[in-house]
């Protein structure tokens, strides 16, 4: 478990003080995939690096499994860092070392295992990330996705409980991104690994995160379960991220509204409700006709969801809304 207590970070640039992160409280539970989203310069990279103290906090306390990280001695800090894994946007592999030697590096630095034990562990890790055939290659000979998998194997070498991901998929193409996210998802479940990831892509959050926090100009402006934040974004920054990810255009939707009559509602289906043949049934029973103005149907991590914007014409609209609410559908009336 990771806990931020009034953690604050400011830099001094000449005479001026620049706030990178305003005092914030945060709680990340063991086994969660926690996503931090924000534009570049929003402070997400700083927040991530505060956890393993690559950045020093200006004030506040950071507790990891009850231990106050901000109070560690230099030696204690090095030992603590050995219990955290970290992967990077540009992989940061050593170009002078082979894949196997890169993965072995944290183990060699820790100096707790024999060469034989290290070799066995490295072989096991490379097998897990599907790179056994590439053990003696150099990073320059690998594709981006393969490099990131080496990065993941290296980060997991010392069996950490927490993995920090710094824009881990931002340099990868969409297909490779999906594979790397899939791998992180599996590792989270297999090892009960806590993953803290930062990204500027809502899609990454939607695919693998349980919880999300939105950072805007050094401030945590929204946080919660991914499903809630993603389907009902409140802060303008969050809304922008969601609309970008879904390629929704508010203005376009607005002009669509003007071309239809009747009640406009937004229905949100989650989980099993997504699969129920609900709309037709409700329409038949209440005599309401509907036209679909917009919609999105996908998965949030492993939960299916659907969100439809409808206009309801004729019949008993209130009864239809009541019936939908009864079936665990969230109904928002956008135009009465």
């Amino acid at each position: 478990m990771i806990e931020f207590q009034r953690v604050h970070k400011a830099y001094k640039v000449g005479e001026r003080e620049i706030t990178a992160l305003e005092p914030c409280d945060l709680r990340i539970e063991q086994g969660q995939i926690f996503g931090l989203i924000g534009h570049s310069g929003a402070g997400k990279s700083t927040l991530l690096r505060l956890i393993n103290r690559l950045e020093e906090p200006s004030a506040g306390r950071i507790l990891v499994d009850g231990e106050d990280v901000t109070a560690l001695s230099p030696k204690g800090l090095r030992q603590f860092r050995q219990k955290l894994g970290m992967i990077f946007q540009h992989f940061n592999l050593l170009s002078s070392k082979t894949v196997a030697d890169n993965v072995a590096m944290p183990l060699k630095l820790a100096g707790k295992l024999s060469v034989k034990e290290i070799n066995a562990r490295v072989a096991m890790l490379l097998e897990r990330v599907g790179l056994s055939d590439h053990a003696s290659k150099y990073p320059a000979q690998l594709s981006g996705g393969q490099k990131q998998r080496v990065g993941i194997a290296r980060a997991l070498a010392t069996s950490p409980k927490i993995l920090l991901c710094d824009e881990a998929t931002s340099a990868l193409d969409p297909q490779t991104t999906a594979q790397v996210l899939q791998l992180l998802n599996e590792l989270n479940k297999e090892l009960n690994l806590t993953i803290v990831l930062i990204t500027h892509e809502m899609d990454v959050i939607r695919r693998i995160c349980d919880q999300v926090a939105v950072l805007d100009a050094g401030k945590l402006v929204e946080r919660g379960k991914v499903a809630d934040v993603f389907l009902h974004p409140k802060h303008p920054t969050t809304q922008r991220f969601v609309y970008e990810a879904e390629q929704l255009d508010e203005n376009e939707l607005e002009s669509d509204f003007n071309r239809v009559t009747g009640l406009i509602v937004r229905l949100t289906f989650k989980g099993e409700a997504t699969y129920a043949p609900l709309l037709g049934q409700v329409a038949r029973e209440t005599g309401v006709d509907y036209s679909i103005l917009g919609g999105r149907i996908d998965h949030i991590r492993d939960t299916p969801y659907g969100q439809l914007t409808l206009s309801l014409v004729g019949g008993d609209a209130q009864a239809a809304i009541a019936q939908l609410k009864n079936a665990q559908v969230t109904v928002e009336v956008l135009r009465g």
Binding site: N52, L54, L77, R78, Q79, F80, R81, Q82, L84, M86, F88, H90, N92, L93, L94, M105, P106, L109, A110, T158, L164
Partner: peptide, 14 residues
């Protein structure tokens, strides 16, 4: 690359 130094620091290297 500074990233390599950062990655090595993150491993807990002296």
């Amino acid at each position: 690359d500074k990233g390599i130094i950062e990655a090595t620091q993150a491993m807990g290297a002296s």
